[in-house]
Design a protein around this nucleic acid. Structure first.
Lengths: 218, 218, 218, 218
DNA sequence: CATGAATGAGTATTCATTCAT
DNA sequence: TATGAATGAATACTCATTCAT
């Protein structure tokens, strides 16, 4: 029997693997839609199962429990956000331009194409349970740490110093605060998706000015 | 009717009124403590009643339902915050100093003496139910509007203009975002209550620089 | 106002107390009937609630959980059994007659008038969960200990000795084994409620002979 | 057809047959271990499959359902016990010695080398479901019937009579009761595996004395 | 024969809310 | 006003069983 004969089961296994991943994604997608629309606690597992067109048991086959579903979602969104921002930083390495690019990417790409993601990450993730809270904190801290590192590079590349040893951390925290509140305000509350372009631009300008304000020896 | 006859019940009525208000406060306080410690959904009405040393029925006599308890708390905290900020703005009318004063008051007074308040307003209020969400939005919008007005006064008093027509609103949103994330990061997550003094100072500097960055004709 | 005026609330409180205890008993009774008829695991809490003519929530108001319901039942039956046997021992203190009396009481009174009790104690209590098992063991050990003490008294009163230091314990264990198997065999399996009179009589004779067999220096 | 041609498939078939039986045993063994350790209801089929290193589906290929697994186990243990006791009776045919031998075998061999078996037969088999209960009863009745026959032979061989027509049956029931309670008490509860040697000896003495107590015309 | 993903009925438990006293 | 017993709808989660591959 030729080599292809041995491959056949491998192919089946691969296809199964793919199908399994698809299911995983389908369920996660259904959960995201419902969490965004109705809120985590107002969404029942039966609804999620129905939306994903699977049985309740299947949801539990793929996810340990409801909490895990939310955490998976948060992690997915968080990772996505980090990648986007990292890429922006890398484009204009170590310059204030990188910060501008990151902000622009956040408001133009992330918020506009994935309003649900913003909702999950900034709204639904807050105060659900101890485990969720821990994970939320972990993800926020990572993002803040990324921003911090970018700010450190800006400082060393431009040969300036900041006000204090903790300035980078503080600024990173401020920037994230701006991102999330602007996103929620214009996107989720006022549904002014168009305004967010302009607001985002100004928010970025605000951010840049804020950073420069903490720079000494310019 | 003799005077004494009229006065006696009046006194009783007054005392009753006072007692009633005390009860109201006691229950609200118990709810706040528990919401902050365990989270809104993880706190049962029975626990609240027990902590307030009243029966479940009594809680329902003073508050329509559990949601109302959270909303009352949010309103109380929101009002408190507004008053604090307004007073700060008034001290240094229409100048950037007012903005600085407000930020300082927020980080020094509000956050440090009422960490529970910050938790209720910024964390527990998010994504509980449609009604709570509506109220939360209303309170945030009010705060933003206050900040916006202060920024308008600063502009008119200093004779400058901002980048665009929506700049005041955008900046107000940014400032609130900075407030809440810095508060949660240093106060609620890292329990670095001492750092918040320094962090607050720098956050205010960041804010001021950000605002000035959006000012044109300086 | 006369003394009776003060008593009124007391009376109400008392009546409430009584009603509460009645409910407790009603629920316990419903659970017993169903556990005996269908088995513990095959009985749902909804069925118990329905049989007791209360809501599911009420069952949980009186009992922490389903397990607790079974444990309460076991304890009730165990206590009842102990009292019955103790009284029998006391009638004919320290003589073999007491042993005979106890056996007779067990087969004539306990088994015949409360076949459900025997079922709960000897059958339903076995291997349900760790907690139930612990409690079951505790109750069995108590019963065995009672029997042991009775045997010790018989020995000291009649001036004999048993084969070894552990003989009383061993005999107590044997006697309980005889009781439960005879009860289950004639009562629960063969529904030969009439035969149990005769069987019980002979089982007692067997028991007595067995005990005497382990007596030395007669 | 040449011999070799016929033999080859036969050999394969035989090996398969052997492997099949091994699987059967492996699964049964895994089930036994888990049932003893965690209890029937607390053990899931997935756990059994995992312990037996097969898939869930495979378990269902070898056993109709979970109930059947327990019943198979009970039957295996029951058969083992019967064989042991029968052999003991046969060694000393028709004499009280046979009864003594059987008891000794039970406590020394059965209990000590297979504590899990005792647990399955005396504890886990009780009150699981109607089918299990029926089978349990059937097995107990068989054992009792064996004991009864042995007692009948003793009676006819020694030329005595018992108290009544039902005495043999009653005594058989008593003996089984003694066996199981002593086994559970010393072996499963108190983990006094060493004491069971002595306790077993005395239990046998108790049994013999009990039987003789019901003999008339000695 | 073996696999393990999929099913979905079944159930214990919670808890906001009501209301007779 | 205050109580707390009673309610029952809502829901997360389990697990024996099946069946396409």
């Amino acid at each position: 029997m030729p080599v292809t004969g041995a491959k056949k089961p491998a192919r089946t296994a691969l296809r199964r693997q793919r199908e399994k991943e698809q299911r995983h994604e389908t369920i996660l997608g259904a959960a995201e839609t419902l969490f965004v629309k109705k809120g985590y606690h107002q969404t029942s597992l039966e609804e999620i199962a129905e939306a994903a067109e699977v049985s309740v048991g299947t949801v539990y086959f793929y996810f340990k429990n409801k909490e895990e579903l939310l955490i998976s979602l948060m992690q997915k969104v968080g990772a996505h956000l980090r990648v986007m921002l990292q890429e922006a930083f890398l484009k204009k390495q170590g310059t204030m331009e990188g910060i501008v690019e990151a902000g622009t990417v956040f408001f133009q790409d992330f918020c506009r194409s994935h309003p649900g993601h913003a909702s999950i990450f900034f709204r639904e993730s807050g105060g659900r349970s101890a485990r969720v809270e821990t994970e939320r904190k972990r993800l926020y801290v990572k993002l803040i740490s990324d921003l911090e590192k970018a700010l450190v590079r800006v400082r060393s590349e431009t040969g300036t110093t900041y006000l204090s040893a903790g300035s980078e951390e503080l600024m990173a925290v401020c920037i994230l605060g701006i991102y999330e509140r602007v996103a929620e305000y214009y996107l989720l509350w006022h549904d002014r998706a168009d305004d967010i372009t302009e607001a985002g631009r100004e928010a970025v300008a605000f951010t840049v000015a804020g950073i420069q304000g903490l720079m000494t020896g310019r």
